[in-house]
Design a binder for these strands. Sequence first.
RNA 1: UGGGGCGUCGUCAAGCGGUAAGACACAGGAUUUUGGUUCCUGCAUUCGGAGGUUCGAAUCCUCCCGCCCCAGCCA
Length: 563
Amino acid sequence: MSNHEASYDFIREIIADDLKSGKHSFIKTRFPPEPNGYLHIGHAKSICLNFGIALHFNGLCNLRFDDTNPSKEDVEYVESIKEDVRWLGFDWDDREYYASDYFDQLFEFAVQLVRKGKAYVCSLSQEQIREYRGTLTEPGRNSPYRDRSIEENLDLFQKMKAGVFKDGEHVLRAKIDMASPNMNMRDPTIYRIKHVAHHRTGDKWSIYPMYDFTHCLSDALEKITHSICTLEFENNRPLYDWVLDTLETDCHPQQIEFARLNLNYTVLSKRRLIQLVEGGHVSGWDDPRMPTLSGIKRRGYTPESIRNFCDRIGVSKRDSIVDMELLEFSVREDLNRHAPRFMAVLNPVKVVIVNYPENLTEELEAVNNPEDASMGKRKVPFSRELYIDRDDFRETPPKKFFRLSPGREVRLRYAYYITCREVIKDKDTGEIIEIRCIYDPETRGGWSKDGRKVKGTIHWVCASQCLRAQVRLYDRLFTASNPLEKKDGVDFKDYLNPNSLEVLDDCPIEPGLKDLSPGSNCQFERQGYFCVDIKDSRPEYPVFNRTVTLRDTWAKIERRGKK
RNA sequence: UGGGGCGUCGUCAAGCGGUAAGACACAGGAUUUUGGUUCCUGCAUUCGGAGGUUCGAAUCCUCCCGCCCCAGCCA
């Protein structure tokens, strides 16, 4: 973008215009989650957008809980939401609001609507209301209660509030147009009776306002300038405007819709995520395979990488499915710069250096992060018996394989050149149980004075000095790129990847790893980025979660060879 | 068959009548004590389709096609 300015997304463009034209001099947005589930990466897009816009234009973004349906909501969710937004790196200061804080004002607004003759108490049953509503192609019919007097409506509505009626006996409806081609305008319900305790207001209310009535007024009360929401609310915008226009509020925010995030190989809807949790397909909302922010965090993703990802995907009105690899690229990019490197062997096979002294242990120097010299160096113990990864040895090496094999010399990272001399196998199973090598004492540190080159460098861990750890290898949760693709009676859960988690126990790891605290990221050299599990890791037996593998060109070459 | 939206590279996405940005992915190559990183190079003669307007169209007009959303006392 050398010649042109970085282009705004269409929302920032609208806002910049509003600022330029003088329509607004101060920008205010809000992030309005309903506390009925955990936040996921899709919400991160909205959070980054709303808070990002406020930051960008020097405005403010409120956090507002849209808690108008007590039967679905819970404080557990509000706590997790606050934690996740903070984790992502955004701050709402003291601007933590709840739609439920506005219940009194909302009630008054509803009374005003009734007084204006723009709302009425309807006593049709739920089924009748549905019948009267008509269909997409046929207009609805007016409710027989549509023309109740203002006095009667007022009286009935007060009684609804007072709790004299049972759930479902009456509702308050906006009086708009039963023939509107927009279903949302066919006298939408704005208040319903619910004898349910609310997580904040307790049993004060027996009626609760509906979303369409609550959201626009909450926005107006908070003096929001731009109310950004997802595409499916586009049909609700006329109603949003109708309520504010009819009530003649002194603030009329502009609702702008953008396309929600979809990611391949996963699902992003609370409804479906809750099925995975309740069905026991994952260990909980924060299972590292979940696209929830708590899951992603536990997986080892950094807030920085999520924010970068959200910048990269852009904002538009097109329904789209973003490639998971873009998310993975974003973490790799961040972790490559920041994660300290260590050596760990996931699938160990023993290597004995036959010409190395029996009882010697050396301390070899290793670089903590080749991308950042300020991260320093560390000592790694080395002795006669080591572990290397089984994948790094082939008895009969395929073409282009330049790791260890009989007669071949490779470099042990930061240590010595070794040459394989003998392979010991289990008599019965034929499994390789030990690889015998000789080392060249002149190559200490991994250099040879004679300039001799080795093709491969492999990682290793000292057998006598290593720690043991559990390593959890995570893979995509679904086998289908779009688990929601419509197919004859196939449920998205049918595409769950049975191999999305592989648990490896007693993996030999470099002793320096014991100092990492829960939640810390690191790289296991040549393998991937890992983090210490926040819940299950113990000093005596650490647990590492694989965040993402390193790019693996060898695997690609090998795969190609097989095809 | 009502209404509201949306169709630009494999995936996102710029483009706002002057001759198709960028990112990821992919493919080559260089450098490398991570087959990592980094660095080069390549990757839409064409913008859902067909017409039209114009000196000039992805951008304007017309028609057509495809996809998404709406019939909760959910949000």
